[in-house]
């Protein structure tokens, strides 16, 4: 599903964020990447999303080498995975409902499908009653669950979460893992 072969990433500043990473994550697997801050965890996710280019090595996702993926195809790669970003990246002037629905508009889902799917996912993350609120009216934990709902709504083949437990009490994060599972 996700395969790294001798991948290194050196930023323009000369910092080597990832050094010779080689690993494979199979379908259905739950993988945790643990490390100190600044150890390159976020860079690894950026490489998977093709937000950053690998300086060396190959990254294979769903059997496809994305190293030479054409720029035009990048959006379609990103759609195949649900990503919960460290800073959530919610659209500030859209409601919780619209933030989640937005991900479905992108994959040209029908209105009917959107109206059915979004409330379902919001109830899954326990935010049904906050659908009409804006991100800045929510707590950090709630914002993260909106991001999680957005990541889940298109039933992606993989979920990638950057620091999914940072902002919460352990009770919450357990909940998040259960949802992902």
């Amino acid at each position: 599903m996700i395969e790294f072969k001798n991948v290194s990433k050196i930023y323009d500043t000369g910092t080597e964020a990832v050094h010779n990473a080689t690993f494979t994550i199979e379908k259905g697997e739950f993988a945790f990447l643990v490390g100190q801050s600044g150890s390159g965890k976020s860079t690894l996710i950026k490489l998977i999303l093709k937000e950053e280019e690998a300086s060396k090595g190959n990254i294979i996702i769903n059997g496809k080498d994305i190293t030479y993926l054409r720029k035009k195809r990048v959006p379609y790669l990103r759609r195949s995975m649900g990503v919960v970003f460290q800073d959530f990246r919610l659209l500030p002037d859209k409601t919780v409902y619209d933030n989640v629905a937005f991900a479905m508009h992108i994959v040209r889902a029908t209105q009917k499908h959107i109206r059915r799917q979004v409330p379902m996912v919001l109830s899954l993350v326990g935010l049904s009653n906050k659908a009409k609120m804006y991100p800045n009216e929510l707590s950090g934990g709630e914002q993260q669950r909106v991001a999680l709902a957005r990541a889940l709504v298109n039933n992606p083949s993989m979920i990638i979460a950057d620091e999914p437990t940072r902002k919460f009490r352990s009770r919450d994060s357990l909940g998040n893992y259960e949802i992902i599972e």
Binding site: P75, R78, L91, I106
Partner: peptide
Amino acid sequence: RREISIMKYVGATDGF
């Protein structure tokens, strides 16, 4: 611009 970059991360095409 932030909104635009978020759209891109979620998989929106330039045209979209």
